[in-house]
Design a protein around this nucleic acid. Structure first.
Lengths: 335, 335
DNA sequence: CTGTTAGCGCATTCAG
DNA sequence: CTGAATGCGCTAACAG
């Protein structure tokens, strides 16, 4: 490894001077600056972040803790971090070992944490958020002082459901992942269900309890099974629209319905959520809610940097704009 | 942050003694060991990895560079690393910025690198592998001295294809991602195509060039389009089996074929590759090649640790065992 | 068995 | 403007 001393020796100056040139904080004579830059070039020297952090007692590295990494989100986070002069490292820990991932923070490897798609109990998450400088991205637990960046799931689902109602759908069903483990709730699923119910309420439709499915486990298979069971009803009693809280479930519904010889969207409309690849993995494709993953990653970094730099007055709750993407699963004539 | 000195002060010993207790290398009196342990407990002290690496001038941290993280693979890597006393950090860099991810190595943050699902040119990869201690996991470029852990793609595809031939399939097609960018080849696709061709050769079947599709871009949509074009042929000239180099493509084929009212597997059999969630996202489900992702992650860590600890004589090329998972897309009566 | 000391790479005092 | 000295957290070598 090339150290600052190697550069100093080659340039014939002290390591302090090299440091000064590289962090251009202080005045250095042009002549020495030249020599230092040449030596840096020649040796391919790159300052060691660890040494820098150690010495400055500050930390411009952000730790992303996630067990499911979305590359759009990471790209957004990466560019925002780079723009602000911050570095990004990820820590993977199996479900239930999230605490272990935090050791990198405690080790001084990072100065702030972004939590994405965690899989721990609410209590655990709240504890972590209170103990460390954390921004929650996408999924979040809300509590006084919590920092999070997401879209408004309730509003998005309400909007999607109202769209179906306005197109004449009467028997609306809802499908979402349910509680997976003791103490672990699926926060976003609850919010989406709330939005679904709100839309019905606004149009004076009484929700049919049999048409609200909370799946456990949450899988393509489970979604398919639920849809098949709805299809056993007589045609005039079946749902004529299924609002799914995930693209995976929506894709399962479209496949099952199509396989049964029933037309999507004419007889049954289906919607997904997230605009992931899954939403394109059925024929017709899914109408879905597009989350701005890239921007969510970027905004999380910006918010976290504000915290890390000691800002007091910043928005701790940011809801970004979503889009409803209309496709063939609700619109005749589209793919 | 709780430091070793805080512990030492509370325990009334020197920091060296604390270090000795924690690394139990040297003998320490039971009495002091007790006191140190109590102080550690009381303060919730956790040794700082950075300080340790800095001081030991060794590095027990592994950097995983990947733009698409498979959680099974990561779990395997995590457990193997933990078992060996190593830490794991991930670095995300957008495609084309892989070099940037390596700065963490150069910064002394890690002592070895595992490269997973990179997206750079062959030349780039070879350069990186020659410059740093790298183990390639899953996809790899083979060159003298390269280290990689994977399954034998050629053999697996050959085996899958022969299975179809033995079940009476005559008009076999192959579908894989093609070259995406200048200078970037899709290594595993080439190997899988080789396996497909080898199987035909063994059974004296002349490959039909029209039945070998290299898709660019590589997507569900592109796979569906290719399959639709094959379906425009008269039934007796159409493929009666499609070997796909990816589950995503296989799922697209099954959907398109089913949608056209043609029976899978009776009229056309389809196979996928990887046993990802995609392979369950069609009806019937895909027969596929299961890669031991967990074990691949674990074995990559073990191989890398051998390199990092200066071993000379170790296997630099490991092919792990794969499984052919038979499902409804090739077997009547199965899901 | 134990404490003191030096040094890993760096930025930042403090003197000059 | 510049260099020598200090310390971040820790371990290893050394001296007791």
């Amino acid at each position: 490894m090339v150290t600052i001393r190697d550069v100093a020796k080659l340039a014939g100056v002290s390591s302090a001077t090299v440091s000064r040139v590289l962090n251009n904080n202080y005045a250095v004579s042009d002549e020495r600056r030249e020599k230092v830059m040449r030596a840096v070039e020649e040796l391919g020297y790159r300052p060691n972040i660890i040494g820098r952090n150690l010495s400055r007692n500050e930390n411009r590295t952000i730790l992303v803790v996630s067990s499911h990494i979305d590359s759009h989100m990471m790209r957004g986070a990466y560019y925002a971090a780079t723009a602000l002069g911050y570095d990004l490292i990820l820590s993977f820990a199996p479900d239930g070992y999230t605490e272990d991932a935090l050791k990198y923070y405690e080790n001084g490897l990072a100065g702030g944490i972004i939590l994405i798609n965690f899989n721990e109990s609410d209590e655990q998450i709240v504890n972590i958020c209170k103990k460390y400088p954390v921004v929650q991205c996408a999924e979040y637990i809300d509590f006084p002082g919590s920092c999070h960046v997401s879209i408004d799931d309730t509003q998005a689902t309400c909007q999607m459901t109202e769209m179906l109602i306005k197109r004449g759908r009467k028997r609306l069903a809802f499908m979402a992942p349910g509680n997976s483990r003791q103490g672990i709730t699926v926060g976003y699923a609850e919010q989406r269900e709330k939005g679904f119910r709100e839309a019905l309420r606004r149009h004076n439709i009484v929700p049919n309890p049999d048409f609200i499915a909370r799946l456990h486990p949450n899988s393509y298979e489970a979604g398919a099974k639920q849809m098949r069971s709805w299809l056993t009803l007589p045609p005039e009693e079946r749902p004529d629209a299924v609002v799914c809280a995930q693209d995976l479930l929506g894709a399962a519904c479209v496949s099952v319905i199509t396989h049964a010889g029933i037309d999507v969207p004419r007889q049954i409309a289906v919607t997904g959520y997230d605009n992931l690849m899954y939403s394109g993995m059925c024929i017709p494709k899914l109408t879905t809610v597009a989350q701005p993953f890239y921007e969510m990653g970027a905004e999380s970094v910006r918010m976290l940097v504000k915290r890390m730099t000691g800002a007091e007055n910043f928005e701790r709750t940011v809801y970004l704009h979503h889009d409803i993407i209309l496709r063939g699963s609700t619109e005749e004539g589209l793919e």
